[in-house]
């Protein structure tokens, strides 16, 4: 709670920087529009202006600065414009009962969320299974662990178009599958590392105690190692779900997808509508925040019920 005031201050400062950056970013475009509307602007042709400093243009044409805050296709939109666009494509459409129309961000967010959760489940399963194999078998540890690390140094985006081609050739028409594979690829590693750490967390004394109980290997795993790994699991799940969302959006960006937040960004780029890009970006940020928050709550509830004080 102590950090609410500082965070708010920093946020307000960031928004202030953003708003003041709008004027120089949009000045050339505003002057072009003003000139076409017959207003006299100081260096006259757009060619000359493109070689003049933005701040000099602002200094010479102070009356036209405000025009930059209300452009249709701004280089840098104002926070208000982004907020309005975001509301127009989510809340307003939901109020009209068209929440799942193809133009609403709720629809696109839902598509992205599905792939993210699918990939997250897949990645978490692979991560947990891999961690169990690594903890149980030294051969698996020695052969898999280095490759798990190397897999994360490979830029997945290079592979993304190939994964889409491959799944397409294998006859999988479902667009969600390649996206889920990419997000699973990004998400399994934090889970794997966290689970290995967690499964190895029990102290030697605890393991020896179970030995004196004549507990089998399976019982030790089930009753000691697994419960001990839960706090580690939740920490890595939070990293994992953020990574899964990044994976889905990366999977949507270069592939000509038609629905999903990444596709909105792509389409906004192709049609030159910056407001669509910005609102999709913020929707993605809100989604990421919501997912991490849900996991944080789950973590608190679970650990409390397990009697942990962490």
């Amino acid at each position: 709670m102590r950090s609410v005031l500082p965070v708010l201050t920093v946020l307000i400062a960031l928004i202030a920087v953003w708003i003041s950056a709008v004027a120089p970013m949009n000045i050339r475009q505003s002057l072009d529009i003003a000139e076409r509307a017959g207003v006299s602007v100081v260096p006259e042709s757009a060619r000359v202006r493109s070689e003049t400093s933005r701040f000099y243009l602002m200094y010479r044409n102070p009356d036209e600065i405000l025009r930059g805050y209300a452009l249709d296709r701004p280089r840098l939109p104002t926070p208000k414009q982004v907020g309005q666009e975001l509301w127009k494509t989510t809340g307003e459409m939901a109020l009209k009962g068209r929440a799942f129309s193809k133009r609403s961000l709720i629809f696109h967010g839902w598509i992205t969320l599905q792939s993210t959760l699918f990939g997250f489940a897949l990645g978490t399963a692979i991560g947990i299974l891999g961690a169990v194999a690594i903890v149980c078998s030294r051969t698996a540890e020695m052969s898999l662990m280095p490759w798990a690390i190397i897999s994360q140094t490979i830029p997945i985006v290079a592979l993304a178009p190939m994964i889409i081609v491959l799944t397409g050739q294998l006859g999988i028409e479902e667009r969600a599958v390649p996206k889920a594979i990419i997000s699973a690829y990004l998400c399994f590693f934090p889970v794997l590392v966290g689970m290995v750490k967690g499964l190895r967390a029990p102290a030697r004394e605890d393991l020896e105690l179970l030995k004196t109980y004549n507990a089998s290997g399976f019982a030790t795993f089930w009753k000691l190692r697994l419960p001990a790994s839960v706090p580690f699991l939740f920490t890595s799940l939070k990293v994992g779900i953020a990574a899964a969302l990044v994976g889905t959006i990366v999977g949507e960006l270069p592939t000509g997808a038609i629905s999903g937040l990444g596709a909105r960004i792509l389409i906004g780029d192709q049609f030159g509508t910056p407001l669509a890009i910005w609102s999709a970006l913020f929707a993605a940020a809100i989604l990421a925040g919501a997912l991490v928050t849900i996991l944080t709550v789950l973590q608190k509830v679970t650990l409390k019920r397990m009697g942990g004080a962490r």
Binding site: L245, I249, G262, L266, A284
Partner: peptide, 11 residues
């Protein structure tokens, strides 16, 4: 740091 920042690439 947890956001999909790659999305700003087109901008």
């Amino acid at each position: 740091a947890a956001l999909p920042i790659v999305g700003i690439a087109p901008i």
